[in-house]
Amino acid sequence: LASQIGSANLTILANHGVIATGRNLAEAVYRAASIERVCRLAYDVLLTGLTPTEMKWSDMVGMKASLIERAADVYWAGAARMTIKSDPSVLQ
């Protein structure tokens, strides 16, 4: 499996889910959550019957780097706060 994945940081396994990697746990979790959100958005767009506008690859590269660099830690902190709020016993 590792040789097939190579240097990819996200792999979708048919009928199993995703494998997400990152420089740290926060980045890997953010990637996993992001692919779920993007797939849901793509599905919702397809349901409209409209043709989506294709993004330029050059724009996507910059956005990807920016999101991973800035959003992973923010996402992780927010997820941790939500978990603690819903179940304070996780701190024990």
Rank of each mutant, 00 (worst) to 15 (best):
76 W>V: 04
90 V>S: 04
47 L>E: 10
36 E>Q: 12
73 D>V: 05
16 H>G: 06
75 Y>P: 00
11 T>R: 14
22 G>L: 06
4 Q>F: 01
30 Y>T: 11
53 T>L: 04
19 I>P: 10
26 A>D: 10
40 R>T: 15
28 A>W: 14
4 Q>S: 05
40 R>P: 08
44 D>E: 11
80 A>E: 13
90 V>A: 04
33 A>C: 04
24 N>R: 08
68 I>S: 04
78 G>H: 05
86 S>D: 00
51 T>L: 07
45 V>A: 02
66 S>R: 09
38 V>A: 15
63 M>Q: 11
51 T>I: 08
74 V>M: 05
75 Y>S: 00
33 A>K: 09
5 I>C: 08
13 L>Q: 11
85 K>P: 00
39 C>M: 14
8 A>I: 02
7 S>W: 03
52 P>E: 02
36 E>H: 10
46 L>W: 03
75 Y>F: 08
80 A>R: 15
76 W>R: 06
19 I>A: 11
86 S>A: 01
77 A>W: 01
44 D>K: 10
54 E>P: 00
70 R>A: 01
4 Q>N: 02
42 A>C: 06
37 R>S: 07
60 M>R: 12
33 A>H: 09
57 W>E: 07
33 A>P: 03
3 S>K: 13
5 I>Y: 02
82 M>V: 08
89 S>G: 02
58 S>L: 05
3 S>N: 07
91 L>I: 04
90 V>H: 05
51 T>V: 12
81 R>K: 13
85 K>C: 00
86 S>R: 01
89 S>C: 00
44 D>Y: 07
43 Y>F: 05
66 S>V: 02
66 S>P: 00
